[in-house]
Amino acid sequence: MDSLFQAKVQTEAFDFGEEYYTFLDGDRAAGAVASFVGRVREINDDQDIKTLELEHYPGMTEKVMLEVLNEARQRWPLLGARVIHRVGPLKPGENIVLVLTASAHRHAALDSCAFIMDHLKTRATFWKKETTPQGEHWIKGRDSDELARARWDQNQSGKQS
């Protein structure tokens, strides 16, 4: 992958504006840039969240993230895609994940951004532990995430059904 297709895992907070403006680094071919920022919720499953701690499998996580970007690149005419995913302890309101995609046209940028996020939720090796007033517990995968990913598999041409 070239420098416009990047995936990284980090503990540090990211600055959305800085990431957005450096994403294409002056490239003017992109007519559309789509973005997604995932944040720590204050309440999950009717429980107050004190912290959300994310762990990952170093090396494997980045590999899977790059595979997802490459799959998106094969399905849509992308000019670039970037994913930043944080690990470590996070508080409600903090950013967890950033996905940026760029293409000449909006549909490719928007669809590929959703595709990347849907696949990261189910394929990337992250484990999440919530701390609530009732204690700590690991978060299980959601059926809704699997369904979101499956819709992309139904139509390999890039458009969701």
Rank of each mutant, 00 (worst) to 15 (best):
K159Y: 13
N44P: 05
Q160Y: 14
Q6A: 12
H85M: 01
L52W: 00
K129V: 00
T11K: 10
G141D: 12
S157R: 11
L120A: 00
P58S: 05
F23K: 05
R75L: 01
D27N: 09
G88E: 08
R82H: 11
T122W: 03
T61M: 07
M117T: 04
E55W: 01
E18Q: 14
H137N: 03
R82S: 10
L79V: 04
M1A: 04
V37M: 11
R149K: 14
G31D: 06
V83E: 02
R151D: 03
E19C: 14
D143V: 12
T125G: 06
D143M: 11
D46S: 15
N95L: 07
H105N: 10
T11L: 06
V99E: 14
R86V: 02
L69E: 00
L78A: 10
L52E: 01
V97S: 09
T101A: 15
R41Q: 01
Q74M: 11
D15G: 06
E53N: 05
V99K: 13
L54D: 03
K50R: 12
L100D: 12
K129D: 00
A124D: 02
G135A: 12
P92Y: 08
T11H: 09
A114G: 12
P92T: 04
E62P: 05
A81Q: 02
E53G: 01
Q160P: 02
L4P: 00
L69I: 00
T122I: 03
G59H: 09
E19A: 15
D45K: 14
R151P: 00
W127E: 06
S157P: 01
E130M: 02
E12P: 08
D153C: 03
S161L: 07
F5H: 12
R151F: 03
D111R: 15
A114N: 13
V68G: 01
V37D: 13
H105I: 02
H56S: 11
G158N: 10
K129H: 02
A148L: 03
G141S: 15
S112A: 15
A114D: 15
L24F: 05
P133G: 02
E12L: 04
R142H: 11
L69P: 05
D27I: 07
A148Q: 08
M1L: 02
N95T: 09
L147P: 03
Y20N: 05
P92G: 08
I43Q: 02
G38K: 06
E67M: 13
E136Q: 06
M117P: 06
D118L: 00
V9N: 04
M60I: 13
A104K: 15
H107A: 15
A81R: 06
S103P: 11
Q47D: 10
Q47W: 00
P77D: 09
S35L: 12
G38S: 07
E18M: 10
L110C: 13
E42R: 08
E146A: 14
N155L: 06
L52C: 05
E55H: 05
D15C: 08
P92C: 08
A30P: 04
E42K: 09
P77R: 05
H137W: 08
V64Y: 01
L69V: 00
T125H: 13
H137P: 00
L52T: 02
T61F: 09
R151I: 13
N155C: 07
I96W: 03
T131K: 12
I43E: 02
L147K: 15
F36W: 10
E42Y: 05
P58G: 04
G59T: 14
